[in-house]
């Protein structure tokens, strides 16, 4: 058995490497989120305001990228371009693969958010002489933003946890950094528990913060829960 003091010492010594991995994990998460929010928003607009072929495409895209496992997407993006002679780094492959998936989910989240603003409010805005653009900016967006936070927090946590799959491509994110340390100092449990703790802080901590934000922005009557 390994002494507790020895464990703490090992974790302390490994901390810089683990934090290095954490930084990569956070970078991945932020880039994937940005990717997903940007294209998801685009797709959601296409789905709401676009013509038939665009709507058809977005629907198809969502179905496909929600159905294929995250890991498979990563491997496809990693091995695909090289077979066409294009080089892609493991890091970029991870961002692209998980970003494609995030786009599908974000698009759905945005769509649900827009829909949450009732059509009578939209009619009311039109009747005040607002155009599509103004209605969206001044009526839909301010309300939708609040409805958006809970599913966004959820999606953030999913993406953060999914970045661990970049391990399979060899990206030196948190989990792989851990494996490197374990290869040298044979105490896997301490290292894995330290890693789990970091993930937990990043998911639980941030979702709690978003929850607080959600409560701050709450308007009576919007997003009231059942029961």
């Amino acid at each position: 058995m390994i002494l507790l003091s020895a464990r703490i010492e090992l974790i302390r010594r490994s901390l810089p490497a683990l934090l290095g991995g954490t930084v990569i994990t956070i970078q991945l998460t932020v880039l994937i989120l940005l990717f997903g929010v940007f294209f998801g928003l685009l797709f959601a607009f296409g789905q709401v305001y676009g013509n038939k072929p665009i709507r058809w495409f977005v629907n198809g895209y969502e179905k496909v990228f929600r159905s294929i496992p995250e890991l498979v997407l990563l491997l496809l993006v990693f091995y695909g371009p090289p077979s066409l002679g294009i080089r892609i780094s493991p890091f970029n492959a991870a961002v692209l693969g998980l970003g494609l998936r995030a786009t599908a989910y974000m698009s759905q989240i945005f769509r649900g958010t827009f829909k949450s603003v009732g059509s009578d409010q939209i009619t009311a805005a039109y009747s005040l002489g607002m155009g599509k653009y103004k209605t969206f900016l001044f009526v839909i967006l301010p309300q939708a933003f609040r409805v958006f936070i809970p599913p966004f927090a959820n999606e953030y946590a999913i993406i953060l946890k999914d970045t661990s799959l970049a391990y399979a491509l060899g990206v030196a994110e948190l989990l792989r950094q851990g494996q490197y340390i374990i290869a040298v100092a044979y105490d896997p449990l301490s290292i894995f528990l330290a890693i789990a703790a970091i993930y937990f802080v990043l998911t639980f901590g941030v979702t709690r913060l978003l929850k607080i934000l959600e409560n701050k922005l709450k308007i009576p009557g919007i997003g009231v829960e059942i029961g």
Partner: peptide, 12 residues
């Protein structure tokens, strides 16, 4: 469990 990646759980 919900706060940590599934892969980390498998590794443990």
């Amino acid at each position: 469990i919900r706060g940590t990646p599934m892969l980390a759980q498998l590794f443990i």
